[in-house]
Design a protein around this nucleic acid. Sequence first.
DNA 1: TTTCATGCTTGTAATTATTACATCTTCGTG
DNA 2: CACGAAGATGTAATAATTACAAGCATGAAA
Lengths: 141, 141
Amino acid sequence: MKLIQDKLESKGLRSSQQRMKILQYLDQHRTHPTVEEIYNGLVKEMPTLSRTTIYNTLQLFLEHALISGLTISGSESRFDFETTPHSHFFCKECGVVMDVEKVDCPCENRGVISGNRIDEVHLYLKGVCKNCLTKSKGGKK
Amino acid sequence: MKLIQDKLESKGLRSSQQRMKILQYLDQHRTHPTVEEIYNGLVKEMPTLSRTTIYNTLQLFLEHALISGLTISGSESRFDFETTPHSHFFCKECGVVMDVEKVDCPCENRGVISGNRIDEVHLYLKGVCKNCLTKSKGGKK
DNA sequence: TTTCATGCTTGTAATTATTACATCTTCGTG
DNA sequence: CACGAAGATGTAATAATTACAAGCATGAAA
C-alpha cells in the first residue's frame, strides 16, 4: 500500500483513500476491469464510494500515465495497471480480455507516420479463447 | 449500384433498399462513419429510415464479413467498407479516423496464439494528426 | 390474382455507459 | 481555529445501444 501511495505522489498527486484504493484494485486485478467492476469490487469496503469518483480518478490516472486504457470490447472502457507496451486478446465467446505476448511491430519504433504524431499503439486481437474452444468442442457444437 | 446489389446477393442476403443504401453509403464514405453519421447522411433521401434498421443491418453485414467494425474512439462504434487488413489512426485533437499504410505484423500470420484462435487483428494508432500539428504550431500553442 | 408466411423495417421504450454540475467534505496552512 | 482549494459525492442529463412489439413488403403456393 505504501508503494501505491508512492506511485501517486511521484506524479505529484495527492493520495486520498479513494485514489489509493482504486489504483490498488487495478494492481491486484489484472483483468482489465470496467468502471462497473471496479465499483462493485470496492463498494463493499467503501460504501460511500461514487461511480463519478471512479470516472474522475481513472481520467486523472490516464492523464498522468499511471495506468492505460483499452477500448477493445465496444461498449465500455477498460483499464490496465500495466503501462508498458503489450497486446490484448478479446474472446468473443466469454468476453475475457487477456494479455498476450508482446508482438513486435515495426511501427512502434517510429514516432511519426505520414506526418501524424503517434502517441499510443494498441494492438487488439479478437477471436475465441482456448477455454471456449475446448468447451465447444467437448459440447459437440 | 448494381455492384452493391451483387455484393449483397453474393452473401445470400436479400437486397432491400435500406441495405443497399447503407452499404453504398459506406462505400462512398471511407471516413469510418458512426451510426449517427450514416443516419444523418441517408435520412434526407429516406425519411422513414430508422436508426434501428441501421444497427440491425450493420450487425448483419458484420456477421457476413461484408464490412468491418472499429472501436477506436471509445464511446461509439465505427464501420468500414474495407475488409482487407489495414491499420487506423485516431487523432485525439480533431477526432478524425484515417487509414494508415498497412503495418506488417508478424502476428497476423499466425492463426493461433497460446491456444487462442485469432479471428481479427486491429491495430490502432492514436496521436495528433498532421493537420492539427501544423495548426497548433501556427497558433503558437 | 389473391393468400400467406417469412423476413425486413419501424418506432417506442428500456438499458447501459458516461458526463455535467452543484454541493458537501477533507485537509493542509496561516 | 478558520479559510480556501482540492477532492468526493449524488443527482440529473446525455449518448449509444438494445429489446420488443407491430407494421410492411415480397415471393412462393394455391
